[in-house]
């Protein structure tokens, strides 16, 4: 088999696996929701989920946990996509959690709302009675994620206990929970960043245009290029400059970095990802470089 055929067959198998997980959880759970950030992983997940039930409509809504620190292009993309695909959108607002005193915002020029999302997410799951939340998390993203199950059980406080995870023999998923508990379901667990881009190329999945090369005014901070304006203010001695960049991940604008890139098409990006020597989180997420257990600690508190 040629390398291309091998890669395509691998992607097909991942696609069938993910579709099957989405169907199984949606059928066994009473009130699922799909977490949609507007990023590439959640775009692929939503695309897959729509295919899983065709020609019927997607039998559950999608939810965006909105930090208020958004890239405007992403919000515009989100609204366009849900309208086009006929999907119901729920927005959970971090600003509302702050205003109501449920979450306390960090102070200072480098404050990020990333961590606060856990509070908003858990509150919204409870408010709407969602018992399962699909996420686009992948095991290759982080070493704590590598240990996570496809169905990740959360207790009544929304906490993840990595030492008390349910075994997952074969593909026999066990989504049983008690009232007040919930599940996170990760159908893309076995995908890598490259698989995601191959799926996007194969199915021409629409993405926010910030995933492709464009000129942006940025500042270099801790080795990361942050977009100036909005939540990111220049500190003394920092200098803004224009650069040709694209984003490898899309998250809270205060802590998501851009990478220098001239990739303007999906194929350009695929070539770039295949040659990348830095992980997408290492290159673009200030929040995960704080400590080697940053992700594990956030996940224990209820993070995505």
């Amino acid at each position: 088999m040629s390398t291309e055929i091998v890669a395509a067959a691998h992607l097909d198998a991942l696609t069938d696996e993910a579709l099957t997980i989405v169907r199984e959880v949606a059928t066994e759970c009473e009130n699922p929701v799909l977490l949609f950030s507007g990023g590439k992983d959640s775009a692929v997940l939503l695309h897959l989920a729509v295919l899983a039930f065709a020609p019927a409509r997607l039998p559950f809504p999608v939810m965006h946990v909105d930090t208020g620190h958004n890239f405007p292009e992403v919000i515009e993309y989100r609204d366009r996509l849900v309208a086009e695909w006929g999907v119901r959108l729920v927005v959970a607002s971090v600003q509302r959690s702050i205003d109501s005193g449920r979450a306390v915002e960090d102070a200072g020029p480098r404050a990020s709302r990333n961590r606060l999302q856990s509070v908003t997410l858990l509150d919204a799951l409870a408010e709407h009675g969602f018992d399962a939340a699909f996420g686009g998390g992948r095991r290759d993203e982080d070493k704590a994620r590598a240990k996570e199950r496809i169905l990740s059980f959360r207790d009544r406080q929304g906490r993840w206990d990595p030492r008390a995870q349910r075994p997952e023999p074969w593909a026999l998923l066990n989504p049983r929970i008690r009232k007040g508990e919930h599940l996170r379901a990760f159908p893309l667990s076995n995908w890598t960043e490259l698989d995601i881009w191959q799926y996007i190329a194969r199915h021409q999945v629409p993405l926010p245009n910030i995933y492709f090369s464009h000129t942006r005014t940025v500042v270099e901070r801790d080795g990361m290029l942050l977009s100036v304006g909005g939540p990111v203010a220049l500190e003394p001695h920092e200098q803004a400059f224009d650069e040709l960049v694209r984003y490898r991940t899309v998250g809270d604008a205060s802590c998501t970095g851009a990478v220098r890139s001239t990739a303007t098409t999906i194929d350009d990006v695929l070539a770039e990802v295949a040659a990348a020597r830095i992980t997408e989180r290492g290159a673009t997420r200030a929040d995960d470089t704080f400590s080697e257990s940053a992700m594990e600690d956030r996940k224990r508190e209820g993070y995505f």
Binding site: A7, H10, D140, K143, A146, P162, S189, N190, E296
Partner: peptide
């Protein structure tokens, strides 16, 4: 060995999944 306790104790506690091609 991705979990904090695993690194501290130098053991593998849970199934980890890894990918390469």
């Amino acid at each position: 060995d991705g979990l904090r306790a695993e690194r501290e104790q130098g053991i593998t506690i849970d199934v980890a999944h890894r990918y390469f091609a």
